[in-house]
């Protein structure tokens, strides 16, 4: 399904929200074993119309998760395999010289794979920064500009990127500006023993689990609109803001570790992600209001990639996850 930018959202019943989200989750679980938090994170980002960056060593099912999601949703899916020789035009498209039947030659725009509802940017950090940056406009403005013409991307538009850990060979770290455009950064953990056994059981037999499409793009947009109606009480909102601001080393209430190891904290886009994710989580939990725990639950994926560490942290091996954990330990509700 590809819709234009004028797609109108309709109010859906509140019960529908939970049911749809549950269906999506159940369908994904047919293929993906375990990774409950990752699946939940992806669904939250999806409802928030946010982009997701999945990080993990090869073979953990990152690509499989996104591909399954595309199968569950009635959306147009495209996959871009990022390689070092991938060029921006390979992603956003380019003007090519074409000749019509009459022999007239003209430059016509050839769309790139970015023109889809759900774009899988596989191993995004294997491409050069130049190519990586080609996604910047698409991710934020949901449009691409080629030459002098700007073209809108279909709605909904999601970029689901995967990347290998940065320390691996042949990788280029994503620029901060690009990282900030990701709603969530999810770290895919290694499966547990039992999960691994289940994976073996499922993947080493001849039958492949089939998933069905349970939600349309319109439904996702409606769900997104509905989630924005969730109430956040003032003291809860203050807590969310405080958590976000605590990522800034110059804030007096920031934890000691943040002051020591963080260079820059989260942007306001981080706070937006935090609030929206908290609202969706509340709805998924069957509530109509945001609780402190919603902020605490979504803080890690929403903020971890928005904290820029300093050289000392790199040398000490301190991760942004540790800083977010410290923040949550120090900034307590109430």
């Amino acid at each position: 399904m590809k819709t234009d930018d004028n797609t109108r959202t309709m109010e859906i019943p509140i019960e529908e929200f939970g049911k749809t989200a549950k269906k999506i989750e159940e369908e994904i679980r047919k293929v993906i074993v375990g990774q409950a938090e990752i699946i939940r994170g992806v669904i939250i980002a999806l409802i928030a119309e946010g982009h997701v960056l999945l990080e993990g060593v090869p073979g953990l099912g990152k690509t499989m998760l996104i591909r399954t999601l595309s199968e569950v949703l009635d959306l147009e899916f495209s996959r871009i395999q990022f390689t070092p020789d991938l060029m921006p035009a390979d992603i956003i498209g380019t003007n090519i010289l074409s000749e019509d039947g009459a022999g007239n030659k003209a430059l016509t725009y050839q769309q790139g794979p970015i023109f889809a509802n759900l774009v899988l940017a596989d191993e995004i950090n294997r491409a050069t920064p130049k190519t990586q940056s080609s996604l910047l406009e698409a991710m934020q403005e949901r449009s691409v500009t080629v030459g002098t013409k700007t073209r809108k991307l279909p709605s909904p538009f999601f970029v689901m990127a995967t990347q290998n850990p940065l320390e691996m060979e042949g990788t280029y770290p994503l620029p901060e500006a690009q990282l900030d455009r990701f709603f969530f950064k999810l770290l895919v953990p290694y499966p547990e023993d039992l999960e691994l056994l289940e994976i073996m059981n499922r993947t080493t037999i001849s039958t492949v689990p089939k998933v069905s499409k349970v939600a349309s793009g319109e439904m996702i947009l409606n769900m997104s609109a509905l989630a924005k109606e969730v109430l956040v009480a003032s003291h809860v909102a203050e807590y969310g803001i405080k958590v976000m601001l605590a990522t800034h080393p110059d804030k007096e209430f920031a934890p000691k570790s943040v002051k020591q190891f963080a260079r820059y904290g989260s942007s306001p886009r981080g706070a937006q992600a935090l609030f929206l994710a908290a609202k969706i989580r509340a709805l998924l939990d069957g509530r109509y209001n945001v609780a402190f725990e919603d902020f605490r639950e979504v803080a890690m994926p929403a903020l971890r990639h928005r904290i820029l560490l300093n050289y000392e942290a790199v040398m000490e091996g301190v991760t942004s996850d540790a800083l977010v954990k410290d923040i949550l330990d120090v900034i307590q509700p109430g």
Binding site: E11, I14, E229, L231, V232, N289, V290
Partner: peptide
Amino acid sequence: TKERLSTAIELRSQGLRTRFS
């Protein structure tokens, strides 16, 4: 109670009207 009461009180006192009120 996951901030249900405080949200309700704020909703009531400040007249916040949303679909979820």
